[in-house]
Design a protein around this nucleic acid. Structure first.
Length: 221
DNA sequence: AACAATGTCAACCGCATATGC
DNA sequence: AGCATATGCGGTTGACATTGT
């Protein structure tokens, strides 16, 4: 049995106080990132290492770009999601100053709905067929039509891929990407070269290759 | 003004993967 | 090679804010 990442009895939970933030910032300023397990004690924080890491990465890092997402960023997230699926850290890696948590939250609260309103299934970026469209008076139509990404997508081929939860495999990626390959959307410009640098596109392609390779290894050991 | 419904986002949890021994 | 531990990731939760009735 795995040991818990920290002694839960002695750790604070919930929102961070200003003092805690300052302690964490000061410690990392002096000692740098890393060694999250020992950091809380060294920094005098009653938090677990994971919590410190999350706080730093998602909120305290000096290079974070806070505030609203620009249209370009929105566009890029949608395109990258079509390519990569729910791999938020990879997507965030292409958006300077944005974190995976931020991108994920923004996707779930804004972009998913935006795509649904455009008649696009946010899970696979296909056009929602007529019988899948939300009913006008259905109050939580979004949730009822589109299942969360981790669950079985409500698509015609949903029974082909079992709702297997395994990291490193490529269900989301291959599903979303393959669906795009044979089902181009007229209003979803997937030419990443327009708003994304060539190196970024190369990196995305490279990641996809790696993912493909990895899933092949898993499927065919 | 009061309450309910809904939206947003920071933080937590559990698992997978990476790394070191 | 196999185990133990640390780190990273994605899904989910819950508190707070906002909007509607």
């Amino acid at each position: 049995m795995r040991k818990p990442c920290c002694d839960k009895q002695d750790t604070n939970k919930g929102a961070w106080s200003k003092q805690e933030d300052e302690k964490l910032i000061n410690y990392i300023r002096i000692h740098g990132e890393g060694c999250w397990r020992t950091l809380p004690q060294a920094a005098g924080l009653l938090r677990c290492g994971k919590s410190c890491r999350l706080r730093w990465i998602n909120y305290l890092r000096p290079d974070l770009k806070r505030g609203n997402f620009t249209e370009d960023e929105e566009d890029l997230i949608i395109k990258l999601h079509a390519l990569l699926g729910n791999r938020w850290s990879l997507i965030a890696g292409r958006l300077p100053g944005r974190t995976d948590n931020e991108v994920k939250n923004y996707w779930n609260s804004h972009l998913r709905r935006k795509l649904i309103n455009m008649g696009i299934d946010p899970n696979n970026h296909r056009l929602i067929t007529h019988n899948h469209l939300p009913r006008p008076h259905d109050s939580n139509s979004g949730a009822s039509i589109i299942s969360p990404a981790s669950k079985v997508p409500v698509t015609d081929n949903s029974n082909i891929h079992p709702p297997e939860k395994s990291r490193g495999d490529n269900d989301q990626v291959s599903d979303a990407a393959s669906s795009l390959e044979d089902h181009q959307l007229p209003d979803l410009n997937l030419d990443l070269t327009i708003s994304v640098s060539a190196s970024t596109v190369d990196k995305v392609k490279d990641d996809r290759r790696k993912s493909q390779k990895q899933s092949n290894i898993i499927e065919d050991p």
